[in-house]
């Protein structure tokens, strides 16, 4: 079995997306096994360095899940995440991280099915992108 199994880190907010992931579990919504969840209070606490760290340590994708705009448990933390995500994305592009590897999704507590869908979609997309190789290693490979 040589299929590429990407490793994806998901930062899920405690109030919406983490609950949605639980709800997907309660409803036994089958998911691909590639996502590893880290629970945070709010998507707004996900420091861009966490995302960079995950890629640096070998993750092939990173998902941030927050409450829908307007529904944030902390009033507007999700909006701040959104604002940061644009710069983060362009920074990731510089590092050779394709857009499909990083996702920011609004998933409400009631949206278990959506969570499962996002997970499966993302795994498939990253599978098609192949493993993430940081630039140094890439050039090293090129030299070899």
């Amino acid at each position: 079995m040589n299929r590429f199994e990407p490793r994806i880190i998901a930062f899920l907010c405690n109030w919406c997306s983490y609950v949605a992931a639980d709800a997907a579990g309660v409803a036994r919504l089958t998911q691909l096994p590639n996502v590893r969840v880290i629970r945070v209070n709010c998507s707004g606490m996900v420091d861009p360095s966490y995302v960079m760290k995950a890629f640096a340590d070998g993750a092939d994708g990173v998902l941030i899940g927050g409450c829908h705009p307007g529904d944030c448990h902390y009033i507007s933390g999700n909006i701040k995440t959104l604002r940061r995500s644009f710069l983060l994305k362009s920074l990731l592009r510089e590092l050779g991280v394709e857009d499909g590897r990083f996702r920011l999704e609004w998933i409400a507590a009631s949206e278990g099915p959506r969570y499962a869908k996002v997970v499966n979609e993302m795994v498939e997309e990253i599978r098609s992108l192949g493993p993430y190789v940081p630039p140094q290693r890439r050039s090293a490979k090129g030299a070899a």
């Binding site: 945070v40 707004g44 606490m45 420091d47 360095s49 448990h73 933390g77 701040k80 995440t81 940061r84």
Partner: peptide, 22 residues
Amino acid sequence: QGCGTCAAACPAAAIAVAHYTP
């Protein structure tokens, strides 16, 4: 309330939320 938006935004990494530190 511990949402951590400040911590994520601090350019000097001077703020951290207890129990959710970098």
